[in-house]
């Protein structure tokens, strides 16, 4: 079992280290992946968790913590307007360029399979954490 996991882990070896790091530390769930895809495709979005959940067809209770983590990771920015927490894509050009590389890499099926594998591993590790 451990060997099989190690073999599978080798699949990640040829991924651009910057993208691998992005997958390990920032886009480590499918919901984050969806949100990043949405913000990448619609980069001037400025909205609340409730509306972003609606746009991505998900439950706000699930989406809000993920948005918060993306903001903590510097992928998004969050601003408080009156009593609203408004999320926008980061203005940091390096991060935007990295996300652009990630989304372009996702056009390749082989990359997507590897990325999906990695996210599943991250989720499993999270679930198994005591």
């Amino acid at each position: 079992m451990a060997d099989a996991q190690d073999d599978a882990a080798h699949l990640m070896d040829d991924i651009d280290p910057r993208l691998l790091d992005l997958l390990r530390t920032r886009i480590n769930t499918f919901i984050k992946w969806d949100l990043v895809r949405f913000f990448h495709a619609n980069p001037h979005t400025a909205d609340t968790a409730e509306n972003l959940a609606r746009y991505t067809g998900r439950d706000v209770r699930v989406v809000e913590p993920e948005l918060r983590q993306l903001a903590q990771a510097g992928v998004l920015e969050v601003e408080t307007l009156a009593d609203l927490r408004v999320y926008t894509l980061t203005a940091d050009n390096n991060t935007v360029a990295l996300l652009d590389s990630f989304m372009r890499a996702c056009d390749d099926r082989q990359f997507r399979i590897k990325a999906i594998y990695h996210v599943i591993r991250s989720l499993r590790r999270e679930r198994e954490r005591p």
């Binding site: 619609n42 001037h44 400025a46 909205d47 509306n51 746009y55 408004v86």
Partner: peptide, 16 residues
């Protein structure tokens, strides 16, 4: 600039 947003965010933004 094409901005995806909502009425509540727009109003809160233009008020400040």
């Amino acid at each position: 600039r094409v901005i995806q947003t909502s009425p509540e965010v727009t109003l809160a933004d233009v008020r400040r």
